[in-house]
Amino acid sequence: MPLFKKKEGIVEMEEDGGSYGFDINVTQLVELMELHGKELIDKLNNDYGGLNGLLQKLKANSQKGLESDNETDLEERRNVFGENKIPPKPMKSFLKLCWEALHDLMIIILLVCSIVSIGLSFYKAPDENNSTNKKGVAILIAVLVVVTVTAFNDWRKEKQFRGLQTKIESDQLSNVVRDGKVQQVNVFDLVVGDMCLIKY
């Protein structure tokens, strides 16, 4: 039995979709979306009675589309079938960005040099001036600074990119038939049952 998230919590949906007034459920729609060409047309005609049959199961009017002022219906469609949003991938953590910055070839070479330099400083005679240790530590500090700055810059760029991407996505409009006329609707406000006008 599929589960769908709702604002108040988790809602169980019956396989027939009947409890919500729809004669089709998400699983069936996903199966349709995965088909192409003749296979899709055959499935649509044989199982759903063609396009008009599918629209009837979705409680959508083939001439007028959905009613834009019927918020109850639109909200019910969002609750049953989900919102038209793809959740963004989680941002990389600062530590992960630091780890990725450490994989730079030059950084690896510098790390090896600093470790070798620090290691060699322990094998010096006690009466000699031990400046090798200071050089190794200085190289290590320089590497840490470079890695931190690189990771911070990458983190800031990714944050800016996500902000720009969100702005672009939120400004996208789609032409749909609602109330018997073509309207422009934000892509995030599209629901299952909307008839979209596709431009090629």
Rank of each mutant, 00 (worst) to 15 (best):
L110N: 05
I139A: 10
G82V: 09
K59N: 15
K124E: 13
L173C: 00
K157A: 13
P126L: 02
E100N: 08
D69W: 11
Q63V: 13
Q56H: 10
N45P: 01
T148K: 00
K124T: 07
E67V: 08
V112S: 09
E128M: 10
E128R: 10
V80K: 01
T166R: 14
N79V: 00
C113L: 15
A60D: 06
Q165W: 13
S117V: 00
V112W: 10
A125D: 13
N130L: 04
L51E: 15
I118F: 11
L111P: 00
E158F: 00
I107E: 09
D73M: 06
F152E: 11
N52L: 15
E158L: 02
L58T: 01
L173S: 04
L102R: 04
F122R: 02
Q172F: 09
T132N: 10
A138I: 12
F81C: 01
N133I: 08
P126I: 03
R78T: 08
I115C: 07
I109Q: 09
G136E: 05
K124A: 04
L74P: 05
L54I: 07
F81M: 02
N175T: 10
V112Q: 02
S93E: 08
A60K: 07
N84K: 05
V80R: 02
K59C: 13
N129C: 05
V182R: 07
A151P: 02
Q165F: 15
P126K: 03
G82S: 05
V147S: 06
G119Y: 11
P90S: 08
L105D: 01
N130F: 04
L58E: 03
D47R: 03
A138Q: 05
P88N: 09
K64I: 11
K167W: 10
L173A: 02
N52Q: 14
V176C: 08
S174I: 05
N52W: 07
Q183K: 15
S68E: 12
S93A: 01
R78G: 06
L173R: 01
N46V: 09
L74S: 04
H103M: 12
A125C: 00
S68N: 11
P88Y: 00
G82C: 08
L102C: 14
N153A: 14
K124Y: 08
R156C: 08
K157L: 12
N129Y: 11
T72H: 09
Q56T: 08
A138E: 09
V149S: 00
D69G: 12
N46G: 01
S62T: 11
I108A: 03
